[in-house]
């Protein structure tokens, strides 16, 4: 049991940090520009495919350096020549623009890299178990992912609190008009943040593409969950995104182990109801099956009862 808990904690930490890398960029973009970027997970996918392509050509380590800036550049271009033009039509149009973009990126990936998964293996240097505890191994690559994402978290925190541009971004998070009035070039800051957020998503893709599977559906499977993270964490709050990422990953990981259903719960208080009819399945669904849909339930509840999120400063 101890073994199970330790490894579940470690694994949820790995997944949580990957989610954080994705959601940190998204929450910055969302809170600054008000754009719910549906294409954010597509940038993550692009990162994975760029990483795959570069690592087959010149190796994984150069890919780790080159691919994220490439994705960031692409993101900046999208902001400059796409999103900025749509801005005048309002948030709905901006949002729909990103929906369409996600659509095009997915088809583009289908077209260039094919519709099946690609072989994107763990780099040789990291392909060994780093430690073994009670018969279970923990792979070096997972440790490496953990290391990278913690480093990114520290760097991001440093940039946002200790540098000039970070302070401007922070100010623009809460009072964009005021920052504009003070003479800062807010559109340029927007482009920077959008590009930076995309680059982070790209980095998550480069390392996550190995950890998970690099395939055209990878954006669609991860997309909605990132929204859950930023909603639960609260708008504009990096700490919130951090906490929410870890929390959601832990929920998903630990729910797997709980094999109780609604009827078990009722039996606990002494009710033993045999329910028939068309909804009888509802009673026998075990909590362990619901792990990955719990986040959506969580999101809906948060939005209804605490729209600020866990640590948000203002409502969405």
């Amino acid at each position: 049991m101890l073994e199970y808990i330790i490894f579940s904690l470690l694994n949820s930490l790995v997944l949580g940090m990957l989610l954080f890398m994705l959601s940190s960029g998204l929450t910055l973009i969302f809170s600054m520009m008000g754009v719910l970027n549906f294409a954010h997970a597509s940038f993550y996918m692009l990162g994975a495919y760029f990483g795959y392509q570069i690592s087959t050509a010149i190796g994984f380590w150069p890919a780790l350096i080159i691919a994220p800036p490439l994705v960031g550049l692409f993101g900046a271009l999208v902001e400059r020549y796409g999103l900025r033009n749509v801005h005048k039509y309002g948030h709905v149009a901006e949002l729909l623009f990103t929906v369409g973009l996600a659509f095009i990126i997915e088809e583009g990936v289908n077209l260039i890299w094919g519709r099946n998964a690609v072989t994107y293996p763990i780099p040789k240097l990291l392909d060994f178990p780093i430690f073994t505890l009670f018969n279970t191994e923990f792979s070096a690559y997972r440790m490496f992912m953990l290391f990278i994402s913690v480093a990114i978290f520290i760097a991001l925190y440093w940039i946002l609190t200790r540098t000039r541009i970070g302070l401007i971004i922070q100010a623009a998070l809460t009072h964009p008009q005021m920052v504009n009035a003070l003479g800062h070039n807010v559109p340029a800051v927007f482009m920077l943040v959008f590009g930076g957020g995309s680059a982070l998503a790209g980095l998550a893709g480069v390392i996550g593409g190995i950890f998970l599977v690099t395939e055209p559906a990878m954006a669609a499977t991860l997309g909605p969950i990132v929204f859950v993270v930023i909603v639960v964490g609260g708008m504009g709050s990096l700490t919130g995104a951090f906490v929410a990422s870890l929390l959601l990953a832990a929920i998903q990981t630990f729910a797997v182990g709980i094999e109780y259903s609604l009827s078990d719960l009722l039996a606990l208080v002494g009710i033993r109801a045999e329910v028939g009819g068309i909804l009888k399945d509802l009673w026998r669904i075990q909590l362990s099956h619901t792990g990955p849909i719990l986040p959506y339930l969580f999101m809906v509840l948060i939005l209804m009862f605490r729209p600020k999120g866990l640590m948000g400063k203002r409502e969405t």
Partner: peptide, 19 residues
């Protein structure tokens, strides 16, 4: 889901849809 419109509503509808 209709306590607020705009993004909150959009996200709630997304969550309900997924659920």
């Amino acid at each position: 889901s209709t306590a607020r419109a705009s993004t909150t509503f959009a996200l709630i509808s997304l969550g309900i849809g997924e659920l």
